Amino acid sequence: MKYVDEYRDSKLAKRIADDIARLSDGRHLKFMEVCGGHTHTIYKHGIEDILPPNIDLIHGPGCPVCVLPMGRVDDAISIAHMENVIFTTFGDMMRVPGSHGSLLDARAEGADVRFVYSPLDALKLARQYPDKQVVFFAIGFETTAPSTAVTLLRAQAEGIKNFSVFCNHVTIIPAIKAILDSPDLRLDGFVGPGHVTMVIGLRPYTFIARQHRKPIVVAGFEPLDIIQSVHMLVQQICEGRSEVENQYARVVQPEGNVKALEAMARTMELRPFFEWRGLGFITQSALKLRPEFARWDAELRFEVPGLRVADPKACQCGEVLKGVIKPWECKVFGTACTPETPIGTCMVSPEGACAAYFNYGRFSMAAERHRLNVMPAMSAQESP
């Protein structure tokens, strides 16, 4: 297939969904789509309405903005307010709430906060304003970490001293391990993240199949990509297999992106521990700059509060990120918490599950409630 329309062929999607229904034979199966990009595709294109009602898709912690704890947002805001600082960030971080407002609020209060499309844009600002300290708010999984790494290498090569990185990159494998070890949820398989896997390759997922006996299929982001991935998962279960399969072969290579991994290894190392929203502290789950790049480390250059801040009591982002509840089951969803007035991060990010439901899922809520009423006795504990 070469064209976008071919990845959105409704007749082919229906045929694959019918075959999923035949293979699953009414068996209730729960699959977690790890990536927030998949969540948005699912609800934008109504994939849950195409799949048979016994197939349940659960949201995972694959939105890097959503998993960032409030304390780290407060740290970023404290840097932004410092004198002589230009604080740069991706656009979706501008409205993420801290305990006392957001970066957008900080800009309204006079802080020089700018959104950029890449860390190289931030480095360009450092060249343009040599009398300013330019800080880049680095977030994301292994998908965006290579661009931060390349920028650090360029800053080192050019000897640019007024540029630094506030590093909040996280890694996907420890998060999946935490999900698998959680007693809150029973899963039958995973729709694996396509963009992350494009960097890290397929090998890191083998523990899911070998140790936990769960199938995982790395998927692309078009509707037929996800439907085919669900079909591949159901087929594995019917055949008694637990393997790592690659549906996104047109982009993902088994070995990943070796050059990107090398750049990350040269500039970053694992943190001993890092707090995730909803998942708590997970050991060796995030990245920090290596000692050789200490002069470009904003955490060492600036004093930050470094305090742990509890989420608002009304917000249930943690339960949403773990797949324990659906976004619309949160008591403030769509009322006090909207994209215009977000309480939690899941409503802010373009990849957040709550934003996906709010933007695309209003017509799916009735179907979702019907799904729950049709199978009221099927609990997480009863799922195979």
Rank of each mutant, 00 (worst) to 15 (best):
E319K: 15
V252M: 00
A265C: 00
K313G: 14
S349V: 10
M264E: 08
C330V: 11
T341I: 10
R277L: 06
F358A: 02
F302T: 06
G280Y: 06
F293A: 09
T341W: 05
E255A: 07
F358I: 04
A265T: 01
E351W: 07
E329R: 13
R308Q: 12
E299L: 01
G323M: 15
G361Y: 03
P339R: 14
A355T: 09
A356Q: 03
D297T: 00
Q316A: 15
G323S: 15
E351S: 10
R290C: 00
R295Y: 05
E292L: 02
Y360K: 05
A314M: 06
F358K: 04
G334H: 12
V251I: 11
M268Y: 01
G280E: 04
D297N: 02
L279V: 03
K331G: 13
F358C: 01
G318E: 12
K259G: 07
D311R: 11
V324P: 09
L270N: 06
L307Y: 10
Q253V: 09
E269I: 01
G318F: 10
C354H: 02
F281C: 00
K322W: 13
R301L: 12
E269Q: 03
F363A: 15
F293E: 01
S285C: 05
I282V: 02
L279P: 03
P342I: 12
K288C: 08
A260G: 00
L279Q: 05
P254Q: 08
M365H: 08
D311Q: 14
A366K: 03
L270Y: 09
